[in-house]
Design a protein around this nucleic acid. Structure first.
Length: 422
RNA sequence: GGAGGGGUGGCAGAGCGGUUUAAUGCACUGGUCUUGAAAACCAGAGUCUCCGCAAGGUGACCGCAGGUUCGAAUCCUGUCCCCUCCGCCA
């Protein structure tokens, strides 16, 4: 959530920044609502002060209140109540206005509203020139991907991994988690997949994106679309001990997305599905550390791709392409020669204080100093079915077998996927 | 699902309509003393909000939300969470 004080005191800058992502901000409405909020508080506080004084005097004097006092205090109470109701309405209107506002893009984020304005900033590895087979064909032939069963059990955009295909995904998760925990200093978290409404608001997924989320009406719980939601919620309402910053968390979870917006797109294969597995990195850092942390996370995710011998490019998103909660984002895309496209396998974002404000997660830099909002960053490390796709399409050999990257051998116990064996 | 108990400041723990402006202890911060430290003693200390240039002050917060009352941590209702026992269950 954006800071109201900042919106008002720096309204020209904020309005301009939001315009870069195509959002028109009504500063005057926010300003007037905030002013009436303050006025109502001032009035009602004065009346409460009066009520407290009268009650204190009566208490101290150990007597019954007079008829006049009772009469006057009763009407004061009524007035306090009606001011309170008015205040509640103003507050609701104001937050309803603020919650759907996206984060302010960083100044260094390139201009532009559409994908073509994203900037490719790095490319690694050779692109396989052979236009090979797509993963849905390879997977079917190897007997490790069963789209039909997925559809028959759960419907379209669901799939089943079998045999070495399932184990390949498990190996990938385990290996990535090991790299993050052993080498990169992340704390492993195994969280719930169902969360409360407030947790979804905290991450920025609600109220604006409920169409993409699965929800259970009976319990009012939401299925997470990414582990970012739970990792971000880990400290909601808390004042974090500054000595534990930066906090680095990693979690492997399933992610659930309705994908209504992509109806009809990417329908073949498992590139875009309703449930997928992902390893997610998440950090709480002091505001000054955010930029460096973002670069570190980009390096950490990139290194995974390199170890997997997958060609990739890094794209810096333009202002209009940024995710709702992000101030700056890098996407990592690996090349999938069979499908003939770049697959987004990681999106690494600096959300600054946007999420911690929503969550009321704070830290106190020093004893006695006032609290601050830490900044949050998240990034996939990495998204699994797409990495699984890339391994199949890049590792395919003329004889139909698929070479498995060396880093995974300890986890898989075998070095290739073979039509005969699976 | 059934029965019972409980949620109070960083922690422990009192208070159960008005001297609560939430006791007391521990931990914490500053100070006195000391060569230094410990101990002792003194003082201070939460979060948020609004007013104010500031100093300072108002108000809210005893799980959360309502209600009763001139006045609520205290009474009532709802709700969430935790603990114990029973039942069911991976």
């Amino acid at each position: 959530m954006l800071d109201v004080e900042n919106i008002i005191s720096n309204h020209i800058g904020v309005k301009q920044s939001l315009k870069r992502r195509g959002v028109d901000l009504d500063v005057e409405l926010i300003q007037s609502l905030n002013q009436s909020r303050k006025d109502l508080i001032t009035k009602s506080d004065a009346l409460k002060s009066k009520r407290n004084n009268v009650s204190r005097v009566i208490g101290n004097e150990k007597r019954q209140p007079t008829k006049i006092e009772i009469e006057e205090m009763r009407s004061t109470g009524d007035e306090i109540k009606s001011l309170g109701n008015a205040l509640g309405k103003v507050k609701t209107t104001l937050t309803d206005l603020l919650l759907p506002l996206p984060n302010i893009p960083s100044d260094d984020v390139p201009d532009g509203l559409e994908e073509s304005k994203n900037i490719e900033i790095k490319r690694w590895g050779q692109l396989s020139k052979v236009h090979g087979e797509a993963h849905w064909d390879i997977g079917l032939k190897l007997g490790i991907l069963d789209m039909e069963s997925g559809a028959s059990i759960s419907g379209s955009r669901f799939y089943v991994l079998k045999g070495r295909g399932a184990k390949l995904q498990r190996a990938l998760s385990a290996w990535m988690l090991d790299v993050h925990t052993n080498k990169n200093g992340y704390i492993e978290i195994d969280p719930p997949y169902l969360v409360k409404h407030d947790t979804m608001v905290g991450s920025g997924n609600l109220p604006k994106f409920k169409d993409n989320l699965y929800h259970d009406d009976e319990t009012d719980l939401w299925l997470i679309p990414t582990a970012e939601v739970v990792l971000n919620g880990l400290h909601q309402g808390q004042i974090i001990d500054p000595s534990i910053l930066p906090l680095k968390y990693v979690a492997r979870t399933a992610s659930f997305r309705k994908e209504h917006a992509a109806a009809g797109r990417d329908v073949r294969g498992i590139k875009r599905v309703h449930q997928f597995e992902k390893v997610e990195m998440f950090r709480f850092v002091e505001p000054e550390e955010g930029n460096e942390a973002l670069e570190q996370m980009l390096d950490e995710a990139s290194e995974l791709c390199e170890k997997l011998e997958l060609s990739y490019r890094v794209v810096e998103l333009c202002a209009g392409e940024l995710g709702f909660q992000s101030a700056k984002t890098y996407d990592i895309e690996v090349w999938a020669p069979g499908s003939g496209e770049w697959l987004e396998v990681s999106s690494i974002s600096n959300c600054k204080d946007f999420q911690t404000r929503r969550n009321n997660t704070r830290y106190r830099p020093k004893v006695g100093s006032s609290t601050r909002f830490p900044h949050t960053l998240n990034g996939s490390g990495l998204a699994l079915p797409r990495i699984w796709i890339a391994i199949l399409e890049n590792g395919l050999k003329p004889d139909g077998s698929v070479t498995i990257p060396e880093v995974l051998h300890d986890y898989t116990d075998w070095k290739q996927l073979d039509p005969i064996l699976n």
